[in-house]
Design a protein around this nucleic acid. Sequence first.
DNA 1: CTGTGACCTGACGTATACGTCAAGCAAGGT
DNA 2: ACCTTGCTTGACGTATACGTCAGGTCACAG
Lengths: 145, 145
Amino acid sequence: MSEQQERISGELPGFEDMKQGDLKSIAEASEALGVTQRTLRFYEDKGLIQPGRVGSMRVYSRREMGRMQLILRGKRLGFSIREIGEFLSLYDHDPDQVVQAQRMLDATQERLAELRHQREAIDQTISELESIEKMSRQHLAKKEK
Amino acid sequence: MSEQQERISGELPGFEDMKQGDLKSIAEASEALGVTQRTLRFYEDKGLIQPGRVGSMRVYSRREMGRMQLILRGKRLGFSIREIGEFLSLYDHDPDQVVQAQRMLDATQERLAELRHQREAIDQTISELESIEKMSRQHLAKKEK
DNA sequence: CTGTGACCTGACGTATACGTCAAGCAAGGT
DNA sequence: ACCTTGCTTGACGTATACGTCAGGTCACAG
């Protein structure tokens, strides 16, 4: 094992539980989060996270892992990376989270409106497709004879 | 008015109603269909339509207009241009439309499954967002005091 | 000395459905 | 002769979220 990787996750054999504060290498972080290393570097490029460095190697602390959870949640909710970046940025520079919560509320409502609209569109499309389905079946049944 | 355009839609002044069979220039076709000229050329490139030519100018007959309606409908239903192209191709080379109807049925069902799945996902996302909405409001209400 | 593994930094590729120039031709009007 | 209109064919641009090389460092194993 190279010193480079072991400096972080295994330099104290037999003392794994004591390694300082859950610091993870990029491999461990991506594993734990279920994303690729590329994704972690990408988010870093976009300014969403700022892992520490040991030499040139990235080090992911609990803070970064927490931010990543928020980011992934934001993605599941359909926010773009840019939007998520704005939330996090506000979150950082807004001690009592008032501005932040307000913007979040706004964005949430916009997104809800979008989703409700999409839902209607999908429902319409579904019923249109169902009628096509029927017609196709009838057409095929006729030719079956 | 240039001869080029008038050859199609206006060469018989006073007899506009008699111009042979609803032939349209690209401008008229795009106008009637509510798409841009670029779109018509794009679909032609992709092989979805084959308008005739008078010299180098495209001529849209009722047949092309009909195909365009099908194409636009397919798009509204969420099929990709490639899929639509396949339908039309089958439609062309399948006299009694049995193969065609079968493929259509398959694709329709796949799409329906997708949409129902999407609907569930959207419903989940909506309720998650609604709970975030509540929490944001509470947070703001607290800070309001 | 060389191979191997984990990491690093660019930088180009991907998919979709067109939008947006750019440059050019033909023909009628002024 | 020149301008304008309508049309033509390329060909590059757009947005998003990464995927996928290519090329290079570092340190230890054999």
